[in-house]
Nucleic acid binder design. Structure first.
Lengths: 113, 113
DNA sequence: GGTAATACTTAGAGAGTCAATGTATCGCTG
DNA sequence: CAGCGATACATTGACTCTCTAAGTATTACC
């Protein structure tokens, strides 16, 4: 089967999660499901990638966690964006855009040396 | 301008190198310099990343190496793309495009949930 | 001799992947 | 209703891979 986003999440996951949280608090599981749904599975978030990412971003003060309830009444750890997180999101978005456009320019089918 | 792209090359370097070689054989040092120049330093290729990447791609049969001369008459290892490399380049380009458009869609400033 | 071009190496850490584990709750089926 | 599998949600550990940083080595040219 066609391998999807193998290793490409590297260096991008943080921005994706921060952006997801910029629309309001969510628990981890919901973040993953939402990203997958939103991108038609072009982005697949393993739980073993997501939770460690959430921890380190919490440690860095970009997000905050509190135990609460999921939409269907289950115990869940709800994350929300902090001010620092919002700033970080802007930074990483800018970096991504800059980087991605450079890559696209190089990879463009008819680009000439 | 956005600073150093930390780990974003992850999963992208191979495609960039393959694409560079698709315009003709080059030695490693030239590949790095060319990518940097072409992208206005948006993509910076450390030699510690590049040479291992060249080895593994050679081992996988995507590129071939031969000792030769650089343009200015210095000993240099010249790499060139193989058929398998060309195929791999197409594959990775398609994957990158797919992935990058998904990320951009999520990160887009006014995207709504 | 010093500087640039070119290649290579090693040490290290960061971040993902895979896969197992742990609870709770829901919903079925017998 | 008792039992059981499936789903929601979180955690963790062992592993791997690639990148970064920072060095060494060689040759050519001024």
């Amino acid at each position: 089967m066609p391998t999807l986003s193998k290793d490409r999440l590297h260096g991008t996951l943080d921005a994706l999660v921060l952006k997801t949280l910029s629309w309001g608090p969510r628990h981890g599981y919901a973040i993953a499901r939402w990203l997958e749904e939103k991108t038609g599975d072009a982005i697949q978030v393993e739980e073993g990638s997501l939770y460690p990412a959430l921890y380190r971003m919490e440690k860095r003060g970009w997000i905050e966690a509190a135990w609460g309830m999921s939409e269907i009444g289950r115990k869940a750890k709800i994350y929300r964006l902090t001010g620092a997180g919002r700033k970080q999101l802007r930074l990483e978005t800018a970096e991504w855009t800059h980087f991605a456009s450079a890559v696209s320019r190089v990879l463009k089918p008819d680009a000439s040396p």
